[in-house]
């Protein structure tokens, strides 16, 4: 098993560095996805003048493959908008935007899932629309959709392997670099695949536990 030691164990610094970049990109992308998804969803539901634009954006993000979006944002946007100015930024931006499209639809399902009677009850005791949204709709919607939000994070982690293609130095990038140095892919790629599978498994297990907890405590079914 000296191969494992030479190819994987002795390279752990490089691999861990890559893992750090992966985690960083995924967390930033997740924050972007939640903010963007919520914004898109609110515009679509409550702001008719821009509704059409929001729907176009949501459908575009949802119906375009992440790899295509990634190279499009990385190579075309800098010329088009002068931003993003680094591949790192392009990486989290693409991952975040793609997921914001999905999350917008998830949030919408959560908001529409709140029983009409709850809202009407709020109005009938004299709450303003904003207060009804803040106190009645939002807390329930967030609870029902939170397992789906965690699931979306697993999608981000899985898609994040692709940012290595635009030379962001994440775990996948470092693994491929080691493969190209040694030409011995078996150990490196297997370990890398294992790391990713464990990472995604942990996140999705957390999501499942969260869904169970919510169901037990609040009697909510996952959206």
């Amino acid at each position: 098993m000296s191969n494992w030691e030479r190819l994987v164990w002795n390279q752990q610094g490089v691999l861990l560095q890559g893992l750090g970049v992966t985690v960083e990109v995924c967390l930033i992308a997740f924050a972007v996805a939640i903010t963007g998804g919520l914004t898109l969803c609110l515009i679509r539901t409550y702001f008719p003048p821009l509704r059409f634009a929001a729907i176009v954006l949501i459908e575009f993000f949802r119906a375009t493959p992440i790899f295509v979006q990634l190279v499009w944002i990385a190579y075309v946007w800098p010329e088009l908008f002068g931003w993003p100015n680094s591949f790192f930024t392009a990486g989290w931006l693409a991952l975040g935007l793609q997921s914001s499209g999905y999350l917008a639809e998830t949030f919408r399902a959560g908001i529409e899932g709140v029983a009409r009677g709850h809202r009407e009850a709020g109005y009938s005791v004299g709450m303003s629309p904003l207060l009804v949204f803040q106190r009645i709709v939002m807390p329930q919607a967030v609870l029902t959709v939170s397992p789906s939000i965690v699931n979306q994070f697993t999608v981000i982690v899985k898609s994040s392997t692709l940012i290595s293609v635009i030379t962001v130095q994440d775990l996948m990038f470092q693994a491929m670099k080691l493969v190209n140095v040694w030409y011995e892919p078996i150990e490196i790629l297997t370990v890398t695949a294992g790391i990713y599978i464990v990472m995604v498994f942990l996140v999705s297990t957390a999501g499942k536990m969260l869904a169970d907890l919510l169901r037990r405590r609040y009697g909510l079914a996952a959206a």
Binding site: T154, V157, K158, S159, S160, T161, L162, M172, M176, V179, P185, I186, L189, T190, T192, A193, Y196, I197, V198, V200, F201, S204
Partner: peptide, 23 residues
């Protein structure tokens, strides 16, 4: 199910392409 649902598709494509023929 757990193995393949949690695997990113890019690394699986790369793994099958480079490692599987060797094994």
């Amino acid at each position: 199910v757990e193995l393949f649902r949690n695997a990113p598709d890019y690394i699986m494509v790369v793994w099958v392409h480079f490692v599987l023929p060797l094994l």
